[in-house]
């Protein structure tokens, strides 16, 4: 019970802190708008295939996540509050609070990217199988958040944070990226829900493995 209330309190602290400082939100929003606008200008009147569109969609999500999600730990490190948290909260409390906060942030970001995509590519980005798309966005966001959280915790302790984050993330996220791109293409092509089940199994497995591994590793990353 105490672990639950601590985790909830830490999430509330992060949400209030984010709303006041806009540490991650501004970076995420600016990146989403800039990236989607650039793709729009590059494609102009071209009619890209569903696989190209889904690839570009997740490229935007990937780089947006890279520009914002590391802030959850880096901002604590830069402000010198890491030790304050170490003093008052257990490592598992910090891990789950940051994971849930990053999940909410990633999910909001993918929703924002989806709305922008559907607005600017109204002719070509048409979701024909909504259940596949919804499942992909939810499981993809969970996987992104799980991987990004532990990488952010590692990167926050390094000196070259800005460049290290995407460099470390890419090989870890490549499996997730390939799977979500494939599933999104199926959603845009209007395939049956059953065809995406293997993709969902991979995404669920990825999330569980990443979360379980991170939970075991986090204490060693967080302390010392």
């Amino acid at each position: 019970m105490s672990q639950f209330s601590s985790t909830y309190a830490l999430i509330r602290k992060d949400v209030h802190s984010e709303l006041r400082t806009r540490y991650a939100l501004n970076a995420l929003l600016m990146f989403v708008v800039t990236a989607v606008a650039t793709i729009l200008f590059a494609l102009r009147s071209d009619q890209p295939t569903s696989s190209v569109l889904s690839g570009l969609y997740w490229v935007v999500v990937f780089f947006t996540a890279m520009s914002g999600l590391s802030r959850t730990f880096v901002s604590e490190e830069e402000r010198g509050t890491t030790m304050t948290l170490q003093l008052i909260a257990s490592p598992s409390t910090v891990y789950f609070a940051k994971l849930l906060f990053n999940t909410a942030l990633t999910f909001s970001m993918t929703i924002a990217v989806t709305i922008l995509y559907m607005t600017v590519f109204s002719n070509s980005f048409v979701i024909k199988t909504f259940s596949i798309f919804a499942g992909t966005v939810i499981l993809g966001s969970l996987g992104f958040a799980a991987a990004s959280t532990i990488i952010a915790a590692i990167v926050a302790k390094a000196n070259t944070r800005g460049t290290l984050y995407p460099v470390l993330s890419f090989p870890i996220l490549i499996v997730l990226l390939m799977t979500v791109m494939g599933a999104t293409t199926k959603a845009l092509d209007g395939e049956e829900f059953a065809t995406a089940l293997p993709d969902f199994q991979i995404l669920i497995g990825y999330f569980l493995a990443m979360t379980g591994g991170s939970y075991l590793l986090f204490e060693y990353v967080w302390k010392d």
Partner: peptide, 14 residues
């Protein structure tokens, strides 16, 4: 435990 130290910071935005 209670700690007062130069390396322990509180949150500026609160």
């Amino acid at each position: 435990i209670g700690l007062v130290s130069p390396y322990l910071q509180l949150y500026d935005e609160f």
